[in-house]
Design a protein around this nucleic acid. Structure first.
Ligand SMILES: [Mn+2]
Ligand SMILES: [Mn+2]
Ligand SMILES: [Zn+2]
Ligand SMILES: [Zn+2]
Lengths: 150, 150
DNA sequence: TCCTTAATTGAGAATGAGTTTCAATTTCAA
DNA sequence: TTGAAATTGAAACTCATTCTCAATTAAGGA
């Protein structure tokens, strides 16, 4: 029923059946430039493409993660899992504001190099890493100062 | 009712009242050498000290985190928040083997310095960080090679 | 194209970690 | 000792995620 296209290769690779739901979820995720959660996918599909059940979305996201198409970034303030599409996106790490949830992306080659060096010392084969710097962003610091005029 | 002791300073620092429940939770956490979750605290207290309600434990852990006595390490397989006591424990990061689960602790001052530099650039107030290097440990690599004699 | 079958879907129920409520209890400063 | 204010705990609640299962659908072979 569904024609082969750019997206089906991910599904076939895992021996998954090509369904409209899965294609729509894949399309949706590729459109997100920023971080997203399961509900974001649900809302986007509801508004813009055919509706897909939450169950199918929650089933699909771990599969996409296993295939390296998306990556778990952390949790938002409502404890929802935050994902990001990492296909064709260069690796980067995150600075996260604990006040407003804002995420700054950065990459530092020196740190990446040091990480490799450390693992070499332990004869450890480094496959991936997560680095999250948590604190308070510029804007929230400014707001805090204003409110501190008690 | 409760005599001042080693533990009360944490509570007083935050203007919290010194209750037996809080003292018991503090005592318990200091006994854990490894990672723990809220349920571990509940079970330990139930068996070894006076029982404390889950509500009080769930209320206490974020306070202890805010005071830098414990640290959120991640989530376990049941999605429970994993903590570790970081008082009198020098900061370190983790190398985690995805095969056997082994954890190597390390600290690299150069990386710590670079992390600070990066946050300064963004005028971001760095409060804490998590860095986890994931891959395969020396021993597991050795075992894999042996088994690869197919 | 038509069948067969196993995978997939989705509505709704269930799960479970963590939070909140509120009456009873406790702390602690005065 | 007293009393205002904080704390406690049982139970209800929240809500992200998972599960159930009957109905639907993909896909390969006839
Ligand atoms: Mn990112
Ligand atoms: Mn550690
Ligand atoms: Zn912020
Ligand atoms: Zn290992």
């Amino acid at each position: 029923m569904v024609k082969d296209n750019l997206f089906t290769s991910y599904l076939k690779k895992d021996g998954l059946k090509i369904t409209n739901q899965r294609i729509n979820i894949l399309k949706c995720i590729k459109l997100f430039k920023n971080h997203f959660n399961a509900e974001d996918v649900y809302e986007y599909l509801k508004k813009n493409l055919k509706e897909v059940s939450r169950a199918s979305i929650y089933r699909m996201l771990p599969l996409l993660k296993k295939d390296g198409i998306i990556k778990e970034v952390g949790r938002d303030e409502n404890d929802k899992i935050i994902y990001e599409c990492v296909e064709n996106v260069p690796h980067h790490d995150h600075i996260v504001c604990i006040k407003c949830g804002k995420i700054i992306e950065f990459k530092n080659e020196k740190i990446e190099k040091l990480q490799n060096d450390i693992c070499m010392q332990y004869k450890f084969k480094l496959l991936e890493h997560n680095m999250e710097l948590k604190g308070i962003c510029k804007e929230c610091l400014k707001r805090e100062k204003k409110n501190d005029i008690n």
